[in-house]
């Protein structure tokens, strides 16, 4: 009986935290989403979300987030795999993670200089004879910088999954005559699937609502739902519409979590 009481007391901070910082904000967002710009209760924001403008924006957010996640994964998996094979793997991993300690804004500004018309990249292109190209304010630069920013978060879980992989499984596969490719496809990849899934979640979900890079690196040529939320809250002061978009983002993210979530499978 006493045990149960102390356990309940220990649970208080947890429940307080969940109530104050998880449930209350979501309820507030939901509440605000039912008010139009003049503060009247209405469903007009939801109606507005299903107009071509916002549907197009949702699709393009999805498309860019998908590309960012896919490219991050394609780069991160081989990198993480090679890392586990090196001798000082934790040192190499640390080196990859170090850039994520630097402020995001600072990194974005650095890319303004690197990708600019008179930046390092274009000087290099000029030297090797390709000539100056527009890199800044293109889809390429937006995806490149986003991948650069998100990649440590993709590498970490995959690295951990690969690191925990019992090498005897691989030996067994080889002994049973599997080629390297088959071993990877049938043994290594399925066993590290959890790492891949959590990596994708950690990248895809924030990528869906990126907003600062869309202005700094893409020059507002890429508009995501995050950009729209920022504008509705800061410029238009249309909290209702901003909240409505946020509600849809939460729903989308929830669905994504459910779809990629780890399910207990009968082994």
């Amino acid at each position: 009986m006493e045990n149960k009481l102390t356990r309940n007391i220990y649970m208080i901070p947890y429940w307080l935290w969940i109530a104050l910082f998880v449930i209350a904000p979501i309820l507030l967002i939901l509440y605000y989403s039912f008010f139009d710009i003049e503060g009247h209760f209405s469903l007009v924001n939801y109606q507005k979300f299903f107009t071509p403008v916002y549907l197009k924006m949702t699709l393009s957010s999805f498309w860019y987030a998908f590309l960012i996640t896919l490219i991050s994964l394609l780069v991160a998996y081989p990198t993480a795999y090679l890392l586990t094979k090196t001798r000082h793997k934790h040192l190499w991993l640390l080196l990859i993670i170090v850039p994520s300690w630097i402020n995001l804004l600072l990194k974005a500004y650095a890319f303004l200089g690197i990708f600019g018309t008179y930046g390092i990249t274009n000087s290099f292109l000029e030297v090797i004879g390709i000539g100056t190209k527009q890199i800044l304010f293109t889809d390429f630069s937006f995806i490149f910088v986003s991948v650069y920013i998100f990649i440590p978060f993709m590498i970490l879980p995959i690295f951990n999954a690969l690191n925990e992989l019992n090498p005897s499984f691989i030996d067994a596969a080889h002994d049973l005559g599997a080629s390297k490719w088959t071993t990877f496809r049938r043994v290594i990849f399925p066993l590290t699937m959890d790492g891949v899934k959590s990596g994708c979640q950690v990248v895809f979900i924030p990528a869906l609502s990126l907003f600062m890079l869309t202005r700094l690196i893409a020059g507002n040529r890429v508009i995501t739902l995050g950009t729209a939320i920022e504008q509705h809250f800061l410029v238009t002061q249309d909290w209702g519409m901003g909240s409505t978009i946020a509600v849809f983002l939460i729903i989308i993210m929830f669905l994504f979590m459910v779809l990629t979530g780890t399910r207990k499978r009968g082994m």
Partner: peptide
């Protein structure tokens, strides 16, 4: 239009971007 930007416009135009 090359881009729609915030305060960075000062730096970008001064740098002849």
């Amino acid at each position: 239009i090359k881009a729609i930007v915030g305060d960075e416009i000062k730096m970008l135009i001064a740098n002849e971007e």
